[in-house]
Design a protein around this nucleic acid. Structure first.
Length: 677
RNA sequence: GGCAAGGUAGCUCAGUUGGUUAGAGCACCGCACUCAUAAUGCGGGGGUCGGCGGUUCAAAUCCGCCCCUUGCUACCA
């Protein structure tokens, strides 16, 4: 048995602005299994998390609802903790980043980094909303990502491509407050000098604290150079004021990871645990962060650098996982596969999902797919058909013939030992986060147990007189094998394991509590431990997720043509409209550009003048089908230099993209050059 | 187009440093059994291991080119 380790584990903090969905749960289930496993192994292990409660979206939403941000985050906290609890996510503590502990730690970490010279001040040009009379923090500005061009992105990092940048780099910025175009105005900001830590970070990565795929990706960041990180925001902002400033607040991503510490700090204070043992620079305890692959930058660069700069220890490991797809595709609200935790719970047993995820999880960053058909079959076959069935087929005999009493000897010590020994490999797989392999091994044992029972055919022996002992021995053996299996599955299926413990009439199992079989032991009456999954329930859940959509307005997941998904823009006056010169044009030529994936080069007859316009419609139209037809263009749009030449206008089309793009057409009779008004 | 990760039975996935007829589970077919939540056991059908070429006595496994999927990145004004 290994020495007792001291381990602190975290999952990424969910944002206190929306509901938990199945995508989130990949991470919490993955982490929870690991945490439960470590605890079963007898280690001193703590699993903490918190709501990420700061930032502009929360401020905006609170405003929208006409409540204080504190009221909003308290409500979301209740919702999140209820969802987690019902999925058996067993946090030792679940905190909030809007807490005194977090404020104190954030200030301390900032001050230490500042005093060590890692913070600089720069006056930057920042977007300012003259109408609202305020600076616009990142998330008050929306526009197109400067890197990938994705529309409707916030000013700090792109949710589409993951790039980080400053708000002033956004293309076509619009204030979310007034809807007007922001102007630039000077403002003094504080920056964390990430480059100071380049060597430390490189060493830390090389020391194997991140997965190899992640290390490769980080190499790209290093090559691009580590830029200073803007950690301050102007008021108004929902967050913590920065010490020694008047109106500056910590950027939400500064205090979010510190929330890990704050949550643990709170827990330590309540349970008399020494916080510093876990966080001091030379700590010998272990610290692991489970995160999604989208926030690697923050956790593998900013976070260890901040910790180091403030004199704290760095993480022992940052474990990134992939995203969840459903039936091979991105979660989609319109298909009903964007499933909220609560919606799932209304239809299905959380342990089905825990098991299914576990069966597919590995230590790698790969995305995992929830195949609903496979989900039903796998859960039913493995858990009900194999594992629970072992107990189910033995329990009846033990109850009816032996008053729930197990044999006084173990008749197959070798087989039992085989099951116990298999635990070493299974434990190793858990430790390596190779849950899929662990599950495979466990199921192999379940098959073995069923084979044993078949081989011994207790139902035959039951009919023979004078064979009572043999019958009791065989069934006791089956029950004991079942017990070992439940022990191995307990990190994944804690609730089922608890029921099994009641049936087996044993203390809560640990990893090593099954090394000896139960002898002359009395069981409690057997009750079905798990019901089969019904495909109807799965379908109902999908349907319910579809109807959720109609009742909701938030979300940017899938392009959708409904107004709730894409609300009508702010009112403009006629003047503004009249500024747009729309004209009928004839497409005289449409050419495919072989180096371009999305663009077609159009030559447009404007009734006496030809224009070259690039249009991103290659995915939906063949060049030859366009030549000759009439359509509508914006004729007075400023020309734009593109990779393949100058684009002198824009043709109008609707649709989400891909094959679904639809050019406008005028009724017959319209002529090139006619103005649209 | 560039970078990265993938493409193995209907489905979900294993295949370690190249080595006997390519594996598992589920699904399907047959048989057995009837203790068990239409559960279990035995047996079977089913794959040109994305494609083409190369290295090798030997390649799913190494190399090259190509195709496809996903993510990021570069032109969707």
């Amino acid at each position: 048995m290994p020495d007792k380790r001291k381990i602190l584990i975290t999952s990424a903090l969910p944002y206190a602005n929306g509901s938990i969905h199945l995508g989130h749960l990949v991470e919490y289930i993955q982490t929870d299994i690991w945490s439960r496993f470590q605890k079963m192994r007898g280690h001193e292990c703590y699993y903490v998390c918190a709501d990420d409660a700061h930032g502009t979206p929360i401020m905006l939403r609170a405003r929208l609802e006409g409540i204080e941000p504190e009221t909003l985050i308290a409500r979301i906290w209740q919702e999140h903790t209820a969802d987690f609890a019902d999925f058996h996510i067993d946090f030792d503590h679940y905190h909030s980043t809007h807490s005194p502990e977090n404020e104190q730690l954030a200030r301390a970490i900032y001050v230490k980094n500042r005093d060590a010279g890692h913070i600089t001040q720069k006056t930057i040009l920042q977007a300012y909303d003259p109408e609202a009379g305020m600076f616009l923090p990142d998330r008050f500005i929306k526009g197109a990502c400067p890197k990938c061009g994705a529309e409707d992105q916030y000013g700090d990092n792109c949710e589409v491509c993951g790039a980080t940048y400053s708000p002033t780099e956004l293309k076509h910025p619009v204030s979310a407050v007034s809807g007007t175009k922001p102007v630039e105005k000077a403002s003094e900001h504080l920056f964390f000098q990430l480059a100071d830590f380049e060597q430390i970070l490189k060493d830390w990565h090389l020391a194997g604290h991140v997965q190899t795929e992640v290390a490769n990706k980080l190499g790209e960041w290093f090559e691009a150079g580590l830029a200073d990180w803007d950690i301050s925001r102007d008021a108004p902002y929902f967050g913590f004021p920065i010490p020694d400033t008047e109106d500056k607040y910590f950027y939400v991503w500064l205090d979010a990871p510190i929330g890990y510490m704050a949550s643990f700090r709170h827990f330590c204070d309540q349970h008399s645990i020494d916080f510093d043992t876990f966080w001091q620079a030379d700590s010998e305890t272990e610290l692991y962060h489970f995160i999604g692959k989208d926030i690697i930058y923050f956790h593998a660069l900013f976070w260890p650098a901040m910790l180091h700069g403030a004199g704290y220890r760095k993480p022992s490991g940052v474990f990134a996982h992939g995203f969840l797809t459903v039936d091979g595709a991105k979660m989609s609200k319109s298909r009903g596969t964007f499933i909220k935790a609560r919606t799932y719970l209304e239809h299905l047993n959380p342990e089905y999902l825990r098991y299914y995820f576990a069966a597919k999880l590995s230590r790698r960053v790969d995305d995992i797919d929830l195949n609903l058909e496979d989900f039903v079959q796998r859960v039913n076959a493995d858990l009900v058909g194999k594992v629970v069935n072992i107990a189910s087929r033995c329990a009846g005999f033990i109850k009816k013939r032996f008053a729930n009493q197990l044999s006084e000897t173990c008749v197959e010590p070798a087989l039992y030992a085989e099951f116990v020994q298999a635990g070493e490999q299974i434990a190793d797989y858990y430790e390596q986060r190779e849950y899929g392999r662990a599950v495979r091994d466990i199921m192999k044992l379940a098959d073995r147990a069923n084979q044993y029972i078949d081989e011994k055919a207790p139902w035959v022996i039951a009919k023979q007189t004078g064979e009572e002992q043999a019958l009791q021995d065989i069934c006791s053996m089956g029950i004991n094998l079942f017990r070992v299996l439940i022990g191995y599955l307990k990190p994944i299926l804690p609730s089922m394991a608890n029921q099994a413990e009641i049936f087996l009439n044993v203390e809560p199992m640990t990893w090593h509590s099954q090394t000896e079989p139960l002898i002359a032991h009395r069981l409690n009456p057997f009750k079905p431990l798990m019901k089969r999954v019904d495909m109807d329930n799965v379908q109902n859940m999908v349907e319910a997720s579809k109807t959720d959509l109609a009742a909701q307005t938030q979300g940017t997941e899938m392009a959708d043509t409904t107004l709730s998904q894409d609300p009508i823009a702010d009112v403009i006056d006629y003047e503004a409209f009249a500024q747009i010169d729309l004209r009928i044009v004839r497409i005289v030529k449409a050419e495919s550009i072989k180096e371009a994936d999305k663009l077609l080069r159009l030559t447009l007859d404007l009734g006496g003048e030809n224009r070259q316009v690039f249009a991103g419609i290659k995915s939906a139209y063949q060049p030859q089908e366009l030549a000759g037809r009439l359509t509508v263009m914006v004729a007075n749009l400023a020309p734009r230099k593109m990779r393949f030449g100058l684009s002198e206008g824009m043709v109008l089309a609707a649709g989400p993209g891909g094959k679904d793009l639809f050019l406008l057409s005028p009724d017959s009779g319209a002529q090139p050059g006619m103005r649209i008004k």
